[in-house]
């Protein structure tokens, strides 16, 4: 059974039809890259998966459960799906370590010492354990995004969502974030990444889907997709970003 199973997903913002029937399934351990021009609905799509966006039609099954079923606790569901945002969204009033441990302590009721240990271990994994007691504003963009990834991992989620994680970064900081993401991918984490980083897609993605105007227009393995895009709009898009 697939980890995530999306069936005929539709979303409207008022009259604007943002998602026009997405069908997608993501296996455990799969790394899916979602690309497409801005406004194509790719961020909206992955934000539907942890219900940060509500949708009006269709179903999303996560780990065998319909995420919209009344018996599904939204907070439990979200704690099983980590998300990393374009703007990092770290909590500026908490230290780096507290940013990572807040959810384990408050949601899972983990004791503070165990949470600190877990936090430091995760920060070590993303390479910033020596900054654990600083505040987010004292870190560079790349470091902040790596903290955000550690925060996302702290709940030991089954799936990680990445919503353009490198788009707000200065070019020289992109790689440090991508490297962390590549490590995760190689460790077998199930990941959905909205990104235009084609190097990343080539190296670790199992599949690339291309979205435009709220639809999935094309999907393929990364090597095929980049070498030999089928659709006119994907050809156009690739020409522009490469």
């Amino acid at each position: 059974m697939a980890m995530i199973e999306v069936n005929d997903l539709h979303k409207w913002y008022g009259d604007f039809h943002v998602l026009k029937g997405i069908n997608e399934s993501v296996e455990q351990g799969e790394v899916l890259v979602i690309c497409g021009p801005s406004g194509s609905g790719k961020s909206t799509f992955i934000r539907c998966i942890n219900r940060l966006e509500e949708y009006q039609k269709g179903t999303i099954m996560f780990d065998g459960r319909d995420i919209h079923a009344p018996e599904v606790n939204i907070n439990t569901l979200r704690s099983e799906i980590g998300i990393v945002f374009q703007q990092f969204n770290l909590y500026p009033h908490l230290t780096v370590l507290k940013n990572v441990t807040l959810a384990p302590v408050k949601v899972k009721g983990m004791d503070k010492k165990a949470a600190d240990e877990l936090g430091l271990q995760l920060l070590h994994r993303v390479g910033i354990h020596d900054q654990a007691h600083k505040y987010p504003a004292e870190l560079s963009g790349g470091q902040q995004q790596r903290v955000a990834i550690a925060r996302g991992l702290a709940m030991e989620p089954k799936v990680m969502l990445f919503d353009e994680p490198t788009s707000a970064l200065d070019p020289e900081m992109i790689n440090e974030v991508l490297n962390v993401m590549k490590d995760l991918a190689r460790e077998g984490k199930t990941m959905l990444c909205v990104t235009h980083e084609m190097g990343f897609a080539r190296e670790v993605a199992d599949r690339v889907i291309f979205m435009d105007y709220g639809e999935v227009i094309e999907q393929n393995t990364p090597s095929e997709f980049f070498k030999n895009p089928q659709h006119e709009r994907s050809q156009q898009f690739l020409k522009e970003i490469l």
Binding site: N50, L52, N75, T76, R78, S79, I81, G82, I83, F85, Q87, N89, L90, Y91, L102, A103, K106, V107, A148, R151, G152, A154, M155
Partner: peptide, 20 residues
């Protein structure tokens, strides 16, 4: 994004308000 990050990590609305 502050509320989204908090809710996205599994905090309830009340917890997100209280801690973030």
């Amino acid at each position: 994004g502050q509320m989204e990050a908090a809710r996205g990590s599994g905090l309830s609305h009340v917890q997100a308000m209280r801690y973030v």
